[in-house]
Design a protein around this nucleic acid. Structure first.
Length: 216
DNA sequence: TTCACGATTCTA
DNA sequence: AGAATCGTGAAG
């Protein structure tokens, strides 16, 4: 429990990711978010944090994206300005946490699929549904701007990409655009979600380096 | 008002 | 491989 308590460095302003970071295509933001931290200040003042180890990009240009067709009340946030959380309910049970990216009036975002929690069983935040559950995030947090003031923010990557191998591969759990390689995860992390870890497509999983930020 | 389905997860 | 579970959008 105390392992979840504040690491004072997490709260320093200079490490907070600026809004400009999110003003880029989702497929550029997604890999860059690997290694960054999601931080939440809880009611009791304690700080909850976890290192992002798995992400997926979604964009209006492809049909798996919630904003690919209609603009509705439920996906409205995805069309809004970048730097907000887009949180929706899936399978009637789980909430999924996304970060809105790119620009206003353009639906795109990054799904946070897994976090590595400090200490204890880090697998608890493995998978988007459990991640949201662990951080107590739900529809009431939808459209919330990412900021310290709101008690929910993100901090910069703490490791060098050269030291930790990032894998790029296909997204999971979708029925459209299955072949788009818009999923990234930290190879070394035990927290990468289960269904995702069963990478039956090693041929399509490749090491990712910051230079190859190409789109599709 | 009804119906089919899903950016999931756990269990057998 | 299958079930659980329920809000939402589309259809009637």
């Amino acid at each position: 429990m105390s392992s979840h308590l504040i690491q004072s460095e997490s709260i320093q302003e200079n490490k907070v990711i600026p809004n400009s970071f999110f003003c880029r295509p989702a497929e550029e933001v997604a890999p860059d978010l690997i290694g960054c931290e999601l931080v939440k200040r809880q009611e009791n003042g304690n700080i909850l944090s976890g290192v992002i180890v798995e992400t997926e990009a979604y964009s209006q240009v492809e049909s798996a994206c919630h904003g690919s067709t209609r603009r509705s009340k439920s996906n409205e946030t995805l069309f809004g300005p970048p730097g907000h959380f887009y949180i929706y309910l899936t399978y009637g049970i789980y909430h999924c946490v996304n970060v809105v990216t790119d620009r206003d009036n353009w639906a795109s975002g990054v799904l946070l699929r897994a976090l590595a929690l400090p200490g204890e069983d880090e697998r608890i935040a493995s998978g988007p549904g459990l991640l949201a559950q662990r951080f107590g995030l739900n529809r009431t947090h939808d459209n919330l701007p990412i900021s310290i003031e709101n008690g929910l923010w993100m901090t910069n990557r703490t490791f060098s990409p050269a030291m930790q191998k990032i894998i790029r591969t296909k997204r999971v759990g979708i029925s459209q655009e299955k072949d788009l390689p818009w999923r990234w995860y930290l190879q070394s992390s035990r927290s990468v979600s289960k269904r995702a870890k069963g990478d039956r497509c090693p041929k399509t999983s490749v090491a990712w380096t910051p230079s190859q930020t190409d789109s599709r």
